[in-house]
Design a protein around this nucleic acid. Structure first.
Length: 466
RNA sequence: GGCGACGUGGCCAAGAUGGAUAAGGCAGUGGUCUGCAAAACCUCGAUCACCGGUUCGAGUCCGGUCGUCGCCUCCA
């Protein structure tokens, strides 16, 4: 059994083969840090986090690089507007994104390179491209010579002629061809700049990823990922640069996640229809967003609205409920019931792997988890003991862990309330014995107002934080 | 205009190497349990945008129509 993944380059699912046995080099394009990140960024980071966790689970060692673009037109623009130093501005948003990564329970990348710390590598690569005739200097700028690259357009499946007939490409006198793109931009007054063989300036957007990938993962990598809005021109240009430079195929697999859609449109800064990660986490648990991501194929658009958030919250709750303990009074379930559970356990694991192996079909795999939950709940209802539930619940913990779900109870910092809640439940128990329903319901209702949910079971009353 | 993706029950969504009862979640129905509530369990619902074709057989392949979305300018 092997993993198959959809490769944008070939538009087909292919068997996953790494350059080095058991090791994966993964490069994911990170954000340009000039503003608050939104849940579209979160989705992308989460998608590749899930892929990475799964690869780990399948015993691959993953070297994961995610860059921060901290030199860019937008950053400069924003810094002028705010009157702060652009590098500091970028630093601020990098720190914020780092925090988001923690909050979203995303495994940290192996390396987080930035443009500002990779300047020598970028300049070396540009020089190399000039030497090989794939690039040329023009008045302090350096451009990539697209016509020199025979298979330019292979990722996005575009032909140069088609693009040139379009009216959206800017005509620049200094370029040999309008499709040529900047590797190095000469400095303008007041912009951050670095010394280079072509004078003061800064790198173009695409070259950084090629240079960082080369520096941290080598000439040939296994997987290159990012949002599908990066296919053209960003990734197309990366391929052009990297392959022209090394003369070898750059990334074997190109994976692209779909866009988050808000009211039928892609969530983006330019449209202004965005929900920031901060906004989201103020209202919801990180697991809720992860459930939304898991429930949709990573390549498909992720529909975002309050209904979907609510649905995911409930679904998550159901998953958590599967981990609830056995009833204390349980004496054991009958053998038929236990056999069904055991069968479900082995079936779940097997299917989970097979489904995830097929292009990381998390939505399909999630369905298996819910089947397992139902069987666990059935067994619990049938009187299974904690021990009898353990294999199912352990597997559930294991596989939700592969998904990166924490399923944590959000009881943080409220532990001191526990004795009081227990006391109230004890008092209410007395009321219930006395059949003082109005009062006992009042206790329950008031506690609910405070975020404490009481549930009366055969065993007595259990409670949890909402 | 060019390139690409998609259109599955009320909502989200798997399935597309053609063939088993078209997963799963949410909401809803009717039950079980319960003083009630909650949770849980059981029960009920779609022929897969439309049209035509290939085939013994198509949600799954081909062609067309309509619709939605993305990229072609910064974008996860």
């Amino acid at each position: 059994m092997s993993i198959r993944l959809y490769n944008t380059l070939t538009r087909e699912k292919e068997e996953f083969k790494t350059h080095e046995e058991g090791k994966v080099s993964l490069y994911v394009c990170g954000p340009t840090v000039y503003d608050n990140a939104h849940i579209g960024h979160a989705m992308s980071s989460m998608v590749f986090d899930i892929i990475r966790r799964y690869l780990n689970y399948r015993e691959y060692e993953v070297r994961h690089v995610m860059n921060y673009t901290d030199v860019d037109d937008k950053i400069i623009q924003r810094s002028l507007y705010e009157g702060v130093d652009p590098i500091e501005l970028a630093e601020r948003y990098i720190n914020q994104y780092d925090q988001h990564i923690k909050d979203l329970n995303i495994l940290p990348a192996t390396v987080y390179p930035r443009v500002t710390t990779e300047m020598p590598n970028i300049i070396t690569m540009i020089s190399g491209l000039i030497e090989k005739d794939y690039a040329y200097e023009a008045g302090g700028d350096v451009y990539f010579r697209v016509l020199q690259d025979e298979d330019y357009g292979k990722l996005s499946r575009r032909k140069l002629e088609d693009m040139q007939s379009g009216d959206r490409i800017d005509i620049d006198e200094r370029k040999e061809s309008p499709m040529d793109f900047a590797l190095w931009k000469s400095a303008k007054e007041g912009e951050p700049s670095w010394e280079s063989p072509w004078g003061l300036g800064r790198p173009g957007w695409h070259i950084e990823c090629s240079a960082m990938s080369l520096q941290h993962l080598g000439e040939q990598i296994d997987i290159h990922g990012g949002g599908n809005d990066l296919i053209f021109p960003h990734h197309e240009n990366e391929i052009a640069q990297s392959e022209s430079f090394s003369g070898k195929p750059f990334s074997t697999y190109w994976l692209h996640n779909g866009m988050v859609q808000l009211s039928g449109e892609k969530m983006s800064k330019s449209i202004g229809n965005l929900v920031t990660i901060g906004d989201f986490l103020e209202e919801n648990d990180a697991d809720v967003l992860r459930m939304m991501v898991l429930n949709t194929g990573y390549r498909s658009p992720l529909i975002y609205n309050s209904t979907v958030v609510e649905q995911s919250t409930k679904a998550l709750e159901r998953l958590k409920n599967g981990l609830r303990p056995a009833f204390e009074t349980s004496a054991g379930a009958d053998s038929g019931q236990l056999k069904s559970l055991e069968e479900q356990v082995s079936k779940t694991k097997e299917k989970f792997l097979a489904i995830m192996d097929d292009d990381f079909n998390s939505a399909g795999a999630l369905g298996q988890l819910f089947d397992l939950v139902r069987m666990i709940n059935q067994a619990r209802d049938a009187g299974a003991t904690a021990d009898e539930l353990s294999s199912g619940q352990n597997l559930l913990r294991e596989l939700t862990g592969v998904f990166g779900l924490s399923l944590e109870k959000s009881a943080t910092g409220q532990a001191e309330a526990t004795p009081f809640i227990d006391l109230l439940i004890e008092v209410r128990k007395g009321l219930r014995v006395e059949k003082q329903w109005a009062l006992s319901d009042l206790v329950r209702d008031q506690l609910k107002e405070l975020g404490v949910l009481l549930e009366d079971n055969k065993d007595g009353t259990s409670w949890r934080w909402e």
